[in-house]
């Protein structure tokens, strides 16, 4: 395989008029053009009915569902609970957040089961009107888990009972801005956008806590 003449590459990239190419390059241009044209034939099949049947059978939660209903459904979902360990936080947020992290935010949560733990979500979003968490643990559903900033210091927090294991998540600020947790333990490619990453939450079961 030998390199293609740069003029041919430019013509194929639309940067040069193929009519200006020498005869031999014009033939190569036409050959590749014809090959691409042949590959454009549409497959005579459709998966539309199959996909719609799957969707109708198991409709995904969408944004129209109210936050309260989502939260109730999620909490009733028979999930395991985990405790999230985030040692990086205490180093990074040292003075400002240390006091906040010690607050008993877990009050009011269901008692975690053996394979469950309490995940603590904390983010510093000064000026935000709302912050919520969406993730693999709630089907990335908006409105299911809101963070609170009762003292209006820009530090938003929430606790949740989650299954043990790994969970991907993002913060949604003001209902429209998706941001990864800057203090997450790890990050993983989200598989959707170009180079976008989800935060990764690793939750240990309460039974494994020292």
């Amino acid at each position: 395989m030998s390199p293609i003449d740069q003029r041919l590459q430019e013509a194929l990239d639309g940067e040069r008029d193929p009519g200006d190419l020498p005869t031999d390059l014009r033939e190569s241009y036409a050959l590749l053009s014809a090959a691409a044209q042949m590959l454009k034939a549409m497959p005579p099949v459709s998966v539309a009915s199959r996909v719609m049947a799957e969707i109708r059978q198991n409709p995904a939660p969408v944004q129209s569902e109210g936050p309260a209903r989502r939260l109730i459904r999620w909490l009733r979902g028979g999930r395991a609970v985990t405790v999230r360990l985030r040692p990086v936080w205490t180093l990074a947020l040292a003075a400002g957040l240390a006091t906040v992290l010690l607050l008993p935010w877990s009050d009011g949560l269901p008692t975690p089961g053996v394979a469950q733990g309490i995940a603590k979500f904390v983010g510093h979003f000064p000026g935000a009107r709302s912050v919520e968490v969406v993730g693999s643990f709630n089907d990335w559903s908006r409105g299911a888990l809101a963070l609170n900033d009762d003292d209006h210091d820009g530090i938003w927090h929430a606790d949740a009972v989650l299954p043990a294991g790994q969970h991907e998540y993002m913060f949604v600020v003001d209902g429209e801005r998706w941001v990864p947790d800057p203090l997450a333990d790890r990050y993983v490619d989200d598989g959707f956008g170009a180079g976008q990453q989800n935060s990764l939450l690793i939750v240990r079961p309460v039974s494994a806590q020292p």
């Binding site: 194929l12 990239d13 639309g14 193929p18 033939e27 241009y29 036409a30 050959l31 590749l32 053009s33 014809a34 090959a35 691409a36 044209q37």
Partner: peptide, 16 residues
């Protein structure tokens, strides 16, 4: 075959 390909050839799609 090559002659017929040449006759069928159309400009490649380029939408940069």
């Amino acid at each position: 075959p090559r002659r017929s390909w040449l006759l069928r050839g159309k400009p490649l799609e380029n939408r940069d």
